[in-house]
Design a protein around this nucleic acid. Structure first.
Lengths: 284, 284
DNA sequence: ATTTCGTTTGTAATTTTATTACATTTATTG
DNA sequence: CAATAAATGTAATAAAATTACAAACGAAAT
């Protein structure tokens, strides 16, 4: 496992001085690998043995071994740690931090996905009479995006942003219909109600949400996503991206299930767009 | 450069004893990185200074530095590569592949972002009288999402999916208005027309698109994103995610520029949502 | 507030590891 | 077969990391 991730993950378990060390390393891991234990201790305002203990806490043999691990993590070109943006960041800094923490979140999300459940939901979707995607707020655009994918499959796809329309649509659902409810927190009342209405009308309800949430309890099937959301800025960011990627996974599973001939259909949909585009100089 | 390759490449320049060292390392690099200079010397039947000289010949500072380089070379299992989904992938396989290639694309996207331009666009946005987000197809949901972010800033934000509405909206734009046009290919005719209309009416047009596209030429400012899109399945995936992340960057830049007090506003917007939610057992 | 215990942290000694300076050997060329 | 340059090794030195132990700190109990 990437030791940088491990550091930020174990941050809570560290003692005060160990945290100092952790911060210095996370702030500038490239410098850390080229420092001796003495200079790293000085940079962190901590004694040398503390640095050593810090290394051992991370299950390395000692400082040199730790450096090796660190070097390897950095070599991956992936210091994808969820680094928080702060007030004094330059544009370059916050840009990189956001990209990196998005990648870090995706990695976490990937590990939290229940593949068996993905498979089951893909099953459901391929057999669905009608598929609905509902989300509110930030998740509305995820639902929107899902429609954009699934309509290509030539399956009836439904999507409303309006709560009343969502409710009415669910009222009319029947067995064989699949309703996908998207919510990061899973605590949006109206969406839980929508899920309940759908179930009362025999639709199969699938939630894309966090585990143990009210929404997850209202669903027949739940695709859980545990994403560390940086709530400092009060805007949903990583959760959304993870949801979208999961939608991609479902869409891909769908096309794979339908087989080769089906994929030729997709190409046709794409080719239809050509008329609306400026052609490339060469090739498409 | 990968130091293992460098070793085998420089093999001819090595002296007899150095060759011994090189061979031992190449034969089992994993062992080498966990050995001290003494044990490596013994393994190679060579003295310690010879090992040291060997390291220096490879342009490293000494043995420990050499080990760092070696460790990095070994770490390169090249993690997030854009691995293409194929027909016979199991759910676990395609799930992982999609997550990983999404991360890989984000990494590429990150490197392609022009930070100075980000800064300029943030400038523009903070001074805008009105901000419009337009996109079609898959980019429509990105625009949708952008609205969800920027409306929190208490700035007039506009978004239409309908082409005619987009055109009309641009007709009414004036100096001080910022129009953001989102398109992966930058070849969607209607969107280029929308951009032109906006410019004719003195709005500032910003494109989030690929370089050298017709759309990029129609804009005052262009935020280019070069994302390797897996076109096998004929669905926009990575491009979208990169666009969304860039929107996050812009939104973050915006809040940072506006300063601390402003961020308290954001918290208020978020708190307003609380009434519509099921509360958490503890805490918010 | 004060004592006590457990934890955390630092100081100083020790050990390990790497590097340097120099001597010896080995090859190379006239 | 010298003479010289290059390569290698030995031993001393320096640097770095680790250990053992003592001081400081903080939480719980009196």
């Amino acid at each position: 496992m990437n030791i940088l991730e491990k550091i930020s993950q174990d941050m809570l378990e560290f003692s005060k001085s160990e945290k100092k060390v952790a911060e210095v390393i996370l702030a500038n891991p490239q410098v850390a690998i080229h420092s001796s234990i003495a200079s790293l201790a000085k940079m962190s305002n901590v004694s040398e043995p503390t640095v050593n203990r810090f290394c051992r806490r991370l299950d390395t043999k000692g400082y040199p071994d730790f450096k090796l691990h660190l070097a390897q993590s950095l070599a991956n070109g992936t210091p994808y740690v969820n680094r928080h943006v702060d007030e004094f960041d330059s544009p370059a800094e916050y840009t990189n931090k956001i990209f990196e923490s998005t990648m870090a979140s995706l990695e976490v999300a990937r590990q939290s996905v229940d593949v068996a459940m993905v498979n089951r939901v893909v099953d459901l979707l391929t057999q669905a009479r009608k598929i609905s995607f509902f989300g509110l707020g930030a998740s509305a655009s995820v639902a929107h995006d899902a429609v954009n994918k699934f309509f290509r499959f030539n399956v009836p796809v439904v999507h409303f942003e309006d709560i009343l329309m969502q409710r009415m649509s669910c009222m009319n659902s029947t067995e064989g219909d699949v309703v996908i409810c998207i919510s990061h927190t899973g605590r949006t009342k109206s969406l839980v109600e929508v899920a309940n209405i759908a179930r009362e009308n025999d639709a199969t309800v699938v939630g894309i949400t966090s585990p143990d949430s009210p929404l997850s309890k209202a669903c027949n099937y739940v695709l859980t996503l545990s994403v560390p959301e940086d709530t400092d800025l009060y805007m949903p960011m990583a959760s959304r991206i993870a949801q979208l990627t999961l939608i991609d996974v479902l869409a891909t599973g769908f096309t794979l299930r339908r087989g080769n001939k089906f994929r030729e259909n997709l190409k046709r949909v794409k080719d239809t767009l050509r008329g609306s585009r400026f052609n490339r100089p060469e090739n498409s």
